[in-house]
């Protein structure tokens, strides 16, 4: 009763109304009640009960008589409830009700029950709808406009920051992509250069148009200086790759450091002993090199003078397949 007591102003004022209503119904008892002390409130209420819901008179009156104290507590609440209903309505409205009750009781009850059912159905529906809408968006749905504005501005700020981040990331992506392209180009260039240098240094096999020059010794053996002259002449004429082959050894690639030395009955080229006839395979412009070899006083002339013979043969596919072993330089270091 302590909780219900918070509304106590209203019941206090309502008691009077209830009393009046009761007085209309049964004046004699109502007066008797007003004459009596507070303990008799129970009786007064039972009167109200009688006039309001006549059909319940008997079941209620009996407990009132039996347990006055217990009912008084309930009666205060009951009184209040009663009074609520009676506030706006004149007590007289209940008279036609009482009159028609025996006949009209059933339809009136079902109509009220239907109304109550409708209201409770509505309540259940609204309850579920509210619960669902809260479950879907628990924060924003109940937030006040000012909170929403703050959240919105927060989100805007975050969006700006994220946009900046996207922009900077895209820029760095572009940079990296162009870097990758440049790297690929550089790699391609380096590979091409490595090929060129490999051919030049004799570490890669090569093939192309060029000459096959065969030195056949006559009375005198072919001297190392003659072969060296021929090599120099060919280099001057633009030879790009050369190798020399002979009897008694595998072909030798001729590079910048290749040396020729005379040996008994043959040549030593880069430490490999060869005997004639020697065949020089050269890749370069065939016409130019051919002309260079045939100039008066040149290599061919000199060999002819010594009784030998030089057979020059132009070819579209000269293979220079011998490789030069590269020795890492001991002292020289690149300057960079």
């Amino acid at each position: 009763m302590t909780m219900a007591g918070t509304d106590d102003e209203r019941p206090g004022q309502d008691k009077g109304t209830a009393g009046e209503t009761a007085a209309e119904g049964m004046a004699a008892e109502g007066e008797a009640a007003s004459d009596q002390a507070a303990a008799d409130r129970t009786i007064e209420i039972s009167v109200a009960q009688v006039s309001a819901a006549g059909d319940r008179t008997v079941p209620i009156r009996v407990p009132v008589d039996d347990r006055t104290v217990e009912l008084r507590a309930a009666a205060v609440g009951a009184e209040r409830e009663r009074a609520d209903a009676y506030d706006e309505e004149p007590g007289g409205e209940y008279e036609p009700d009482t009159a028609t009750r025996p006949a009209g009781k059933a339809p009136r009850l079902s109509a009220a029950a239907a109304m109550i059912g409708l209201l409770l159905g509505l309540l259940g529906f609204a309850l579920v709808v509210q619960l669902r809408s809260n479950a879907t968006d628990p924060e924003l749905a109940t937030a006040r406009p000012e909170d929403l504005v703050r959240i919105l501005s927060d989100l805007d700020g975050r969006q700006d920051r994220l946009r900046q981040e996207i922009a900077s990331l895209e820029a760095s992506q572009r940079k990296l992509a162009s870097g990758v392209q440049g790297q690929a180009a550089a790699l391609e260039e380096a590979r091409r250069r490595a090929d060129e240098l490999g051919i030049l240094a004799g570490t890669l096999p090569a093939q192309g148009s060029g000459l096959q020059v065969k030195f056949v010794a006559g009375s005198e053996a072919i001297a190392a200086s003659t072969v060296l002259d021929a090599v120099e002449e060919l280099r001057g004429a633009g030879a790009e790759a050369m190798q020399i082959a002979g009897e008694g050894g595998s072909p030798v690639r001729i590079v910048a450091s290749t040396y020729f030395a005379d040996s008994k009955g043959g040549l030593v080229v880069d430490g490999v002993r060869l005997t004639g006839p020697y065949t020089l395979s050269v890749i370069g412009d065939p016409q130019t090199m051919h002309t260079a070899l045939n100039i008066p006083g040149g290599v061919v002339d000199m060999v002819h003078q010594r009784g030998g013979n030089v057979i020059v043969q132009e070819s579209d596919t000269v293979g220079v397949t011998a490789l030069h072993e590269v020795v890492a330089p001991k002292f020289a270091r690149p300057v960079s």
């Binding site: 109550i116 159905g121 259940g124 609204a126 579920v128």
Partner: peptide, 16 residues
């Protein structure tokens, strides 16, 4: 009884 049934009907309607 009717009230409880109506409440249940309302809840079911809301769910459905």
């Amino acid at each position: 009884m009717i009230a409880v049934l109506a409440l249940l009907v309302g809840v079911v309607l809301g769910v459905v």
